[in-house]
Design a protein around this nucleic acid. Structure first.
Lengths: 352, 352
DNA sequence: ATGAAAGCGCTAACAT
DNA sequence: ATGTTAGCGCTTTCAT
């Protein structure tokens, strides 16, 4: 069996309450006694039982991380920030992979609540609040937050991101700009990116062509198929804003396999700035999210709430700025850099 | 406060032992009583406290997953298998990211032992056994295992992988074949891949040229720099076997940025078959590992050991077959497919 | 400064 | 079939 404070107490000839005090640096322990206890503990290779500790303190120093897909490079980038931040503050994190399945999300939340995690960081799939589980545990949403969420969140301004992407394509001079998204109403982030797209059209007095707005899912293959169908039907725009880089890369491949070129025949911009987008062979223009930083912010927010007992206080909504990254996929090389990066434009901020 | 079995006992007018029995489907509970207990439990929205349960059963149904870098696409692929397998069998997994730092590995193992995980799945950085922590917890190594490990492991035959890669390049007709590795003695997997490389040279009666064997680290950037230096020094082989795909992609970029072409000027093969290697823009030949399957095998092995109490039994070593994947980066299109895939060669297996 | 004892929520004997 | 009790390893009053 494992060594317990009782074993130490015996060896050190003190009560086990004293051992507990000594081990936890509490007041009221003779320095000499403390020294002896510590030395015995080390000698016996004592490891405090976090489970027992958790039972009495009602705190597990444990967090749940719920995300749709570890295999999609966007999420590990966020997760890295979360894991590092949690570790620094003495928390361990349970990895929960939902495979984009909201039922699995629900199950995981219940499971985590049985495991008595102190809180959850959740990159949710949908945009609807799960009434069954909402509020069960202190939660911080990251990357995407359900509508009307009563919990804190760390996201980027997706409307602005969608706006920047679309505006960039319009500024490049493309007459028609299409949109390829995950699903018509899947997540808030989706809605917002599409909203940003529409805003740009409005601003420029352009008319939205429904034929150039397509929805599928989050898979690369889907982007591939969507564009191939459009090309085969000879009905495709001069430029496409894809809602995320994975989709965009699928589109990129689809375009090439149909014998067309990017950006010459179809220009392309993605969203997220996953690491491969920067590869010289890909050179995908995109909207960047500060992924690791978002992860760190999310844990810090969560742990602050937990430790201050403020979990029920007003939720905080952190909204970070997206950044336009221009690479080769988006513009035929016309126009100056100024035009490509309309940073200084009046009214740069966008409604929402 | 959370609702406990006592609350249920009160409401259902039974002792809390009976509640426990009813909840856990134990024998000796009147069906009617059980029904009542269950209904009260549901009504009160009862969630069993896994912490308390763990304290008495001395089992947490919790696993630790220690890996070097979530951000390197190889590991999430393995992790996905682990997470899914664990979940199916009722275990949750703690994510531990070491950043290729062996001290962090040690710290994590201690931490996990305090958290009373039932076992650990470990993708270790080094090849040396950590005497301080080895055997502290039931462990299954995955992807790489320390020399003389006394615990089970799930790896591929890296010697054979290295051999296949090198043989392939030799078969393509390249006179000189170089090797770029992570570090001279960093991990067993590394050593073995290099060993396979050497074996191929021996088999073909070729002489190894030390100038064409280079070491760096696990970063893409490092591969980039190594090849650029070689090219700048005008001392580079016709083909290169890179110990992993991340390194290989760095090399690929380095070659292109120096104005040379792959495979025409320098042929290239990697190792791992991470997802981007298959991109049509990359087309990196490589040695494939069944990553997700390795993850699943590792959890299953671990949980079997845990649940059978066999943790101290003879460790099992699962060694899977690597697979040669030929894409465009490795051969100028000469020779038939037969030659490219020397599957039927006599003595296809390799010593080790 | 230290010890005795209660109790966290649960399971598992042991009674009845 | 059900209740009583002890105890898992620890923290935390409450005494002394």
């Amino acid at each position: 069996m494992n060594v317990t404070i009782k074993d130490i107490a015996e060896q050190a000839r003190v009560s086990y309450a004293t051992v507990s005090r000594a081990l936890n640096n509490k007041y009221g322990v003779d320095p000499e006694t403390r020294r002896r206890v510590l030395s015995v503990a080390k000698e016996l290779n004592y490891r405090p039982n976090a489970i027992a500790r958790g039972l009495v303190s009602n705190r597990s120093f444990t967090l749940g991380l719920i995300l749709p897909d570890v295999t999609n490079p966007y999420f590990p980038a966020v997760a890295a920030g979360i894991e590092a931040g949690a570790q620094e503050r003495g928390y361990s994190v349970f990895l929960c992979n939902t495979n984009w399945d909201t039922r699995r999300e629900t199950n995981y939340i219940k499971l985590l609540s049985e495991r008595r995690v102190d809180g959850i960081i959740h990159a949710p799939v949908g945009n609807t609040l799960n009434e069954e589980t909402e509020g069960l545990l202190p939660t911080v949403y990251v990357s995407n937050a359900p509508k009307n969420a009563r919990q804190s969140s760390v996201i980027i301004d997706n409307i602005r991101g969608g706006y920047l992407a679309t505006k960039h394509l319009i500024d490049c001079g493309y007459e028609s700009v299409g949109f390829v998204g995950v699903s018509e109403h899947e997540t808030m982030a989706n809605n917002d990116r599409l909203e940003g797209y529409k805003t740009a059209f409005r601003r420029y007095g352009k008319e939205i062509k429904q034929d150039y707005i397509k929805f599928g899912d989050f898979r690369q293959e889907t982007g591939y198929k969507i564009i191939q169908t459009m090309i085969a039907d000879r009905s495709y725009p001069q430029a496409i804003f894809a809602e995320n880089d994975v989709l965009a890369i699928g589109i990129l491949h689809g375009i090439k396999d149909m014998g067309l070129r990017v950006p010459d025949d179809i220009a392309l911009i993605g969203f997220d700035d996953i690491s491969f987008s920067a590869y010289q062979e890909i050179q995908l223009s995109t909207i960047s999210q500060p992924k690791e930083r978002m992860g760190r912010l999310a844990v810090d927010l969560l742990i602050d709430e937990i430790e201050s007992g403020d979990a029920k206080a007003a939720p905080r909504r952190v909204i970070l700025e997206p950044e336009l990254i221009v690479r080769k996929s988006s513009c035929r090389s016309t126009g100056s850099d100024e035009e490509l990066l309309p940073r200084t434009e009046a009214g740069g901020s966008v409604p929402g």
